[in-house]
Design a protein around this nucleic acid. Structure first.
Length: 235
RNA sequence: GGACGCCUG
């Protein structure tokens, strides 16, 4: 099982769903029974590929075989539906797992909150963030970057900075995802000075990635600050 | 042996 699951996961990560299924069939052919983890890896691969009806098909197949989906299985489906913008389905699965006492964890919430921001449901995104805290779950760097990005993109850059300032108090250190989201927020909000200031802070802390350059250069270009942009490239 | 987040296009 371990070997087959790793193999199927590898095919999925290589975006080769066809090979993943042929591995599943060959394990069935050899009388090796897939377990929940095997099916979940497939569900995740299908979800990532946007094939939600197939993912749901595997999800029911797993249950038909008497296996019980776990928090990973549900999170994978929620992630997939969010990516497709089918938030209602994601929320439905969230309710379903809660009713089955399969506790959503931080990853489940992160996927859901990201989907909510991207579908423009700012209120529900904020509400679920509150839910996390109420449940005593600990937001991680991913949670913070999702929230900060969502706040920035919805024009609440000030709120985003507030969350950023709170991060150390919550025991989470900002990473390059967080910084990049903030730099992008500043750029798109027209606050190029702040964006550059943050970028310099990132340089000091070693958080600058290629994406940081893209973000800042794009921002500077869109505001016709071509001189600053080329200066950045030369430095 | 399994999960989520940043820019551009």
């Amino acid at each position: 099982d371990v070997i087959y699951t790793a193999l199927i996961d590898g095919h999925c990560k290589a975006d080769n769903i066809t090979e993943a299924f042929s591995t599943l069939h060959s394990m069935l052919g050899r009388g090796v029974l897939p377990d929940v983890q095997t099916y979940t890896v497939l569900i995740h691969g299908l979800s990532k590929a946007g094939k939600m009806q197939d993912a749901m098909g595997i999800f029911s197949e797993l249950q038909d075989k008497g296996l019980v989906p776990d928090v990973f299985s549900y999170s994978a489906l929620i992630f997939g539906f969010c990516k497709q913008g089918e938030i209602e389905k994601a929320l439905q699965l969230y309710d379903e797992m809660c009713s089955k006492n399969i506790e959503p964890n931080i990853v489940t919430y992160n996927a859901l909150i990201d989907g909510l921001w991207k579908s423009g449901d700012n209120k529900k995104a904020n509400d679920f963030f509150t839910t996390i805290l109420e449940k005593g779950l600990v937001p991680n760097a991913v949670t913070c970057s999702i929230m900060i990005n969502g706040l920035c993109k919805s024009g609440n850059v000030t709120e985003a900075f507030r969350l950023y300032d709170e991060m150390p108090l919550r025991g989470v250190m900002p990473d390059s995802f967080v910084y990049n989201a903030l730099v992008d927020g500043c750029c798109k909000g027209g606050n190029l000075e702040k964006a550059i200031e943050l970028f310099e802070e990132m340089v000091e802390k070693g958080f600058v990635t290629t994406l940081s350059f893209n973000t800042l250069i794009d921002g500077l270009c869109k505001f016709r600050k071509l001189d600053e942009a080329s200066q950045l490239l030369e430095a």
